[in-house]
Structure formats: C-alpha cells, structure tokens
C-alpha cells in the first residue's frame, strides 16, 4: 500500500510578542492510501496545528509534507489552493458554511469552482452527484434550506458532502463530532467509515475514544511530538467496537490520557 501522505520532520513555530512557541517538533508520520488515522492527545499538544499544517492550510516552519508525490512545502499559494480544492476535503468541528447560500449551493460551490475552465464534469453532472451524496447522507430533504434551518447533525453531514464533492484523495477532519450529540456523532462516523472503505484516506483529530476506535491507527501527540502510535486495524463491524474501545482506552491510559 503506498503513502498518500508522508510527513517528515515537520516543525511549526509561532512567534508571539517576540516569544517563540514551538508547537510541532520534528513530527514524522505517514497515512497510507485508504487508511483512517486518528490524532489524539491532550489539549494544547498541537493536534489541530498538525492537521492545518499537513493540509497546507497553515505554513510549516520546517520539514516536508509529501502528498501523493507532491512536496507541499515547495508549492506556491495558488498551487496549494488548487490541491486543497481538488484533492483534499475538509471537515471542521463547527459546521462552517457560507450563510448566504443554501445547503445545496454550499455543497456544489467547490465543485463548480474546481471545474471552472476545465473540460471535466458538467454542472449538470455535479448537481446529480451532489444530489446522490445528499441522498446517501440523508439530507436531500433539506437541500434548499438555509443553513440556519437545519440541525447540527444535518449541517455536519452537509459539510461532509461538500468535502466529498470533488472526490478528494484524503479528508482532513478536525473533531468532526465535537459539536454533535451521540446519535448525530454516530451517523457522521458511519458516513466517514463508509467513505474510507470506498478508498478515501482520512486523517482526523479527535478527543473521543469512540471515534478514534473506528480508525485504523491512532497517533498520540504530546507537547508537539508524536509520543507513540497504536494500530487497531480496519474497523469492520459495530459489534467489534466495544473491544476496540477497551484496547484503545488501555493504551491511552498508558500514554497518560
């Protein structure tokens, strides 16, 4: 299995009021194609910074990020934007969407933009794919609604639809269930697992053991360094979840969780 993402000696330093804050210190790891990796760790350990940096949303201070053979540290802002638009998908803890657009329009917007000036999908095809995605994620009934007219779970599923509309090679998710209730979290994770099974790599940051237990591998971050990682293997069925959670919890206890 080849790497979709190879992070090597990644450093990120913020300078605030002439004081340096080394948030990430020589972090190295990989995410294989079709793999789902969770990043865990205490608050302030640099999880979100790691996600934003490897996804090129934030600049890196040192190191390299190889994304399907492309060294992201050498790409120009415009090229990085294109990579993010076409090859990556993003899901945030808060369900961020453009407030002046309907759910449907928010989902298709990146696809319309990605296809601009390219002889790729037609707008009609994009619309059909969006509708199919919405149907799969059971939000087709709220497609024309404004974003303030749907529930949090529906909105997060809409965000997932938006992240999938351009068939990304990898999805970055920053605590995707952080603002959701138990049922909504279950639904969202079910979808992420389904997408992952279909071949899309996922790198997610979470505090939730139940969410992390559904991933193939868990990376534990402390003070900007990878402390250790734990391989859980592919999540196959719901009945295995309790065992996976128990094992993961044990490991996390060892890590000082």
């Amino acid at each position: 299995m080849s790497n979709s993402l190879a992070v090597k000696d990644l450093c990120k330093t913020y300078v605030m009021d002439k004081r340096q804050n080394n948030v990430l210190k020589n972090v190295s790891f990989t995410v294989n194609e079709g793999e789902m990796v969770s990043v865990m760790g205490p608050s302030g350990s640099g999880k979100s910074t790691l996600l934003y940096t490897v996804s090129s949303m934030d600049s890196m201070t040192a190191g390299s990020v190889d994304f399907f053979g492309k060294d992201l540290s050498h790409l120009k802002p415009k090229e990085l934007a294109k990579v993010r638009l076409v090859e990556m998908g993003f899901i945030f803890q808060q369900m961020y969407m453009l407030k002046n657009l309907s759910i449907y329009d928010n989902i298709i917007l990146p696809a319309y933009q990605a296809e601009k000036g390219r002889a790729g999908r037609s707008r009609k095809e994009i619309n059909e794919q969006a509708e199919e995605l919405m149907r799969k994620l059971d939000i087709i009934q709220v497609a024309d609604n404004d974003i303030n007219e749907v529930s949090g779970g529906q909105l997060q599923r809409a965000c997932i639809c938006r992240s999938l509309i351009n068939h990304p090679k990898i999805i970055f998710a920053d605590e995707p269930t952080g603002s959701l209730n138990k049922q909504a979290s279950y639904e969202v994770m079910k979808e992420l697992n389904r997408i992952n099974r279909e071949g899309t790599s996922i790198l997610l940051v979470t505090h939730d053991v139940r969410v992390a237990a559904k991933s193939d591998r868990v990376i534990y971050l402390i003070d900007g360094r990878i402390e250790d990682e734990y391989k859980l293997g592919k999540f196959q069925a719901e009945q295995d979840l309790r065992d996976r959670e128990r094992t993961l919890n044990g490991w996390l206890m060892e890590m000082g969780w």
Partner: peptide, 24 residues
Amino acid sequence: GKSSPLSLYKSGKLPTLFFLAAND
C-alpha cells in the same frame, strides 16, 4: 426571510465569482 436569494445550481453557466458577488 430567506438569506439566499439566488441559487447556484439554477445559475446556468454563471461563473461562481459573479454568483457569489451578486448573491452577497
């Protein structure tokens, strides 16, 4: 009232740039 007066999926071939500006 509804905050999205225009629909992107009904906008035909209108570039997203114009759509977003007009919709705003």
